[in-house]
């Protein structure tokens, strides 16, 4: 009698345990590491000067003296090219780089499957879908002040500051446009040297360093004495954004 009771009791506990086991078809945890995009902001033709806010910088081509007070830009949709040629896609991949916040220069991409990757791709600007899909959060929150309320869309790059070369004493470039001929959104693909691919190891962080140089806003754009303000989409915005975006270069792994 007592044994039966004990048996029933144990059986019941067993049922409880088994019945409540979480449905988990893959108990082995996938091995992953973290990829960190490290953005270094430089100035001058040889990337020889640090790019900092609130510091007078002379543009090597236009000779304008520019003191930046704001410099923000979106870097989004990071993907990594696997050995088999397919892409690993970082979900919800939206970063706002803000020059007044050094922590925003390090973009951490966790949970990347281990292995070697031959290329990294990312987008400068915010894809059109997120510009037409209503209220967004995180880096895309409207409270980040990178959004046009009067003509919906994200400001992809915002560069503001003061300059004696400008007739108004200041400059303000809000570079936006996500569709049609005025689209500034730029996809960049960085192929790594075959012998030195991006290698993600379990539980480790691999840094991928890029050089970002805002001087290239003026590669094909005139001095602030000629153009000191962009507040709509159009060719001026496109030219300025594109030369800047296309100037970003991969530097090294760490």
């Amino acid at each position: 009698m007592k044994n039966i009771k004990l048996f029933t009791f144990l059986a019941a506990i067993l049922i409880l345990l088994v019945a409540c086991k979480k449905e988990e078809n893959n108990p082995s945890v996938a091995e992953t590491g973290t990829v960190k995009l490290m953005l270094t902001h430089r100035w001058d033709a040889n990337n020889s000067t640090n790019f900092l806010l609130d510091l007078p910088l002379v543009h090597p081509v236009t000779n304008d003296t520019l003191t930046f007070t704001t410099f923000n830009y979106y870097l989004t949709n990071v993907r990594l090219k696997k050995a088999d040629g397919t892409w690993w896609v970082h979900p919800e991949s939206y970063f706002l780089v803000n020059l007044s916040d050094t922590t925003s220069f390090e973009l951490a991409i966790p949970n990347v499957p281990i292995g070697t990757y031959s290329a990294m791709e990312y987008t400068l600007g915010v894809d059109s879908l997120r510009n037409v899909s209503g209220a967004q959060g995180g880096a895309l929150a409207i409270s980040n002040n990178m959004f046009w309320s009067w003509s919906t869309g994200y400001i992809m790059t915002k560069a503001e500051g003061i300059s004696n070369n400008s007739s108004s004493g200041s400059f303000s470039f809000h570079l936006a446009g996500f569709e049609g001929p005025d689209n500034v959104v730029t996809k960049r693909t960085f192929d790594f040297i075959t012998q030195i691919p991006l290698t993600v190891k379990n539980g480790k962080i691999i840094e991928v360093h890029y050089l970002v140089n805002p001087m290239h806003l003026w590669d094909n754009s005139p001095s602030v004495s000629v153009l000191n303000n962009i507040a709509t989409t159009g060719n001026n915005a496109k030219v300025m954004a594109k030369t800047f975006y296309n100037s970003i270069i991969f530097d090294h792994f760490n």
Binding site: V132, G134, A135, I142, S149, W150, T152, G153
Partner: peptide
């Protein structure tokens, strides 16, 4: 028509 979504 400058605003493209009711949520914004």
């Amino acid at each position: 028509g400058g605003v493209n979504h009711i949520e914004v």
